[in-house]
Amino acid sequence: MHRLDWLAIVRHGLSTGNVTAQNAEAGGAELIDIPERDADVPLAPAGREQAEAVGHWLARQQPRLAVVSPYLRTRQTAEIALGSIPAEIVVDERLRDRELGVLDLLTARGVQARLPGEARRRERLGKFYYRPPGGESWADVLLRLRALLREIGEDHPGGRVVLVAHEATVLMVRYLAERLSEAELMAIAHGTTIANCSVSTWARSGDRLEPVLFNSVEHLRHHGAPPTRQEDVNAEPV
């Protein structure tokens, strides 16, 4: 990864699942009523506006490679944002969102009500190492991201690469790019919601990638797109 000249990651635009999840949490429901499987949740109309806005920003950055999560909402975001940019687009399953297993489609209230044992286990282990039955821990996701980023760096030395992925992925790419500790990552994650179509970037300085932007939505405001910060459909309940 540190062989790259420039790395960016874009969270997908607002999805229909984001809207449903936000309404479920606000309404005190235990379940998030989403008919599609997570991989098939599409962008909402506002999310398409956001993707167009991030496309204007990306056109100025001139990425040469875009690596995209296979989920529909990320592919749609990339297709809209990169439609007029001469960048190679590669879909890679290692960028998929964290799998939540038994916690899938449960709100924070739903986890406490239906799986109190898992809620206690998560509290004891912490977000970094807690693995829900049938799902992944943050450390599990980092294993696949570390391999992907190493491969990208080796194959594209001096490259300008943008990733299009998910909320938790943004935080974990920051962990890897800046060589953070668990405690440093948790301090950043606490109280931080990664905005839909936000951008986070790093640029080469010597033999390291140094942070430039984190969770920035200025491009959305500039182009009149809604800078929403709704939680992702499969964001970990808190």
Results as ranks from 00 to 15, higher is better:
Q22C: 13
L14I: 11
E88D: 13
L4T: 01
D97I: 00
R94P: 05
L148Y: 08
P226V: 02
T77A: 04
H12G: 06
V41I: 15
R174S: 09
V41C: 06
L185N: 09
D232E: 14
R204S: 11
R204M: 12
R174F: 07
N234D: 12
S84P: 08
A53V: 00
W138L: 15
Y130E: 02
G117L: 07
I89H: 05
L220K: 07
R98E: 10
A44Y: 02
I152K: 09
T193M: 13
D232T: 15
A195P: 04
A113T: 09
L163Y: 08
R64Q: 15
R37S: 13
E210G: 10
S69A: 03
A147Y: 10
T201L: 03
E88T: 14
D155G: 15
A81Y: 10
A66H: 06
V41R: 13
Y129A: 14
E184C: 12
D5Q: 14
L65P: 03
Q112L: 14
P70M: 05
E36N: 04
H2L: 13
G158S: 04
A24H: 03
E88A: 14
R122P: 04
P35A: 14
R3D: 14
Q61C: 12
G159Y: 01
A29C: 13
E30H: 14
A225F: 05
H156A: 04
V199L: 13
G158V: 04
I188W: 10
